[in-house]
Amino acid sequence: DWREIAKLAEEALKKQQPVTVNGQTFNDPNEIKKLLETAQKAI
Score class of each variant (00 low, 15 high):
1 D>N: 11
2 W>N: 04
2 W>H: 03
2 W>L: 05
3 R>F: 15
3 R>P: 13
3 R>T: 14
3 R>E: 14
3 R>G: 14
4 E>G: 08
5 I>R: 00
5 I>E: 01
5 I>K: 00
5 I>F: 04
5 I>N: 00
6 A>M: 14
6 A>G: 04
6 A>R: 08
7 K>E: 08
7 K>F: 12
7 K>Q: 11
8 L>G: 03
8 L>W: 09
8 L>E: 05
8 L>I: 12
9 A>M: 10
9 A>K: 00
9 A>C: 07
9 A>Y: 07
9 A>R: 01
10 E>D: 08
10 E>W: 09
10 E>C: 11
10 E>P: 00
10 E>L: 12
10 E>H: 04
11 E>Q: 10
11 E>V: 06
11 E>P: 00
12 A>S: 04
12 A>E: 01
13 L>S: 02
13 L>G: 02
14 K>Y: 13
14 K>A: 13
14 K>P: 01
15 K>S: 14
16 Q>S: 10
16 Q>T: 06
17 Q>M: 13
17 Q>H: 12
17 Q>K: 10
17 Q>L: 10
18 P>E: 05
18 P>Y: 06
18 P>Q: 07
18 P>A: 13
18 P>I: 06
19 V>F: 11
19 V>S: 02
19 V>A: 03
19 V>L: 15
19 V>K: 00
20 T>H: 12
20 T>R: 08
20 T>S: 11
21 V>M: 07
21 V>A: 05
21 V>I: 15
21 V>P: 02
21 V>Q: 01
22 N>G: 08
22 N>I: 03
22 N>T: 03
22 N>H: 10
23 G>S: 05
23 G>K: 04
23 G>W: 03
23 G>N: 05
24 Q>T: 11
24 Q>Y: 12
24 Q>I: 12
24 Q>S: 06
24 Q>N: 11
25 T>R: 05
25 T>S: 08
25 T>F: 11
25 T>K: 10
26 F>C: 04
27 N>H: 15
28 D>Q: 08
28 D>Y: 15
28 D>S: 07
28 D>N: 13
28 D>F: 13
29 P>W: 10
29 P>S: 09
30 N>D: 13
30 N>G: 13
30 N>C: 07
30 N>W: 14
30 N>E: 15
31 E>T: 06
31 E>N: 04
32 I>L: 06
32 I>G: 00
33 K>M: 11
33 K>G: 06
33 K>Q: 14
33 K>T: 07
33 K>Y: 09
33 K>F: 10
33 K>E: 12
34 K>D: 10
34 K>Y: 10
34 K>A: 10
34 K>L: 13
34 K>E: 10
35 L>Y: 02
35 L>S: 00
35 L>Q: 02
35 L>R: 00
36 L>Q: 03
36 L>K: 03
37 E>D: 10
37 E>K: 04
38 T>P: 01
38 T>W: 13
38 T>A: 06
38 T>I: 12
38 T>K: 10
38 T>H: 10
38 T>N: 09
39 A>S: 04
39 A>V: 06
39 A>N: 01
40 Q>L: 15
40 Q>H: 12
40 Q>S: 07
40 Q>F: 08
40 Q>P: 02
40 Q>E: 11
40 Q>A: 06
40 Q>I: 15
40 Q>V: 14
41 K>M: 15
41 K>T: 13
41 K>S: 11
42 A>Y: 15
42 A>T: 05
42 A>M: 15
42 A>G: 07
42 A>V: 12
42 A>H: 15
42 A>E: 15
43 I>C: 07
43 I>A: 06
43 I>S: 06
43 I>M: 12
43 I>R: 00
43 I>Q: 06
43 I>W: 05
